[in-house]
C-alpha cells in the first residue's frame, strides 16, 4: 500500500502549479505529473482540483493556454506562465517562505 498523498494546504495548489509551469509549458496531465515528481510523490493533484485551478488561473491572467502536440503527437492544451504569472509566482514564493519560517519557529518554541 502506498503512503496516502498528503492533503494540499489551502493555497498551495496555486503555488505548486506556478512552480511546475515555471520550468516550462505543460499540458494538464504534465502539470499533475511534474508536481508529483517535484514533491517526490507527496502531492497527487487530481483532475477535479487541477482543471478548475488551471482555468481559474488562466482567467486571472497568470497562465496562457494554447493547443499543441504532445511527445506522441497528440493534440493537448498546453499552459505556460505569463509575465503576470511569473510575478505572482515570485510573490507567492516569498510569502510561502515567510509562513514556513514562521511555522518552523513556532514548532521549535518550547
Amino acid at each position: 500500500m502506498a503512503r496516502p498523498p498528503a492533503a494540499l494546504l489551502q493555497g498551495t495548489l496555486d503555488l505548486l502549479i506556478l512552480k511546475a509551469l515555471n520550468l516550462g509549458a505543460l499540458h494538464g496531465l504534465g502539470v499533475s505529473r511534474r508536481i508529483e515528481a517535484i514533491t517526490r510523490g507527496t502531492f497527487l493533484v487530481k483532475p477535479g482540483s487541477l482543471f478548475p485551478a488551471l482555468h481559474r488561473m488562466e482567467e486571472a491572467g497568470w497562465l496562457a493556454a494554447s493547443w499543441g502536440n504532445s511527445e506522441n503527437n497528440r493534440r493537448a492544451r498546453y499552459y505556460k506562465l505569463t509575465a503576470a504569472g511569473r510575478r505572482q509566482f515570485e510573490s507567492e514564493v516569498s510569502q510561502w517562505e515567510r509562513i514556513a519560517t514562521a511555522i518552523a519557529y513556532a514548532l521549535q518554541a518550547t
Partner: peptide
C-alpha cells in the same frame, strides 16, 4: 468544445501512460 477536447486529451494521455 475546448473543454471537452482538453479532458478527452487528458484521458487519452493517461491511457497511454
Amino acid at each position: 468544445r475546448d473543454l471537452d477536447q482538453e479532458l478527452r486529451a487528458f484521458i487519452d494521455l493517461l491511457v497511454e501512460e
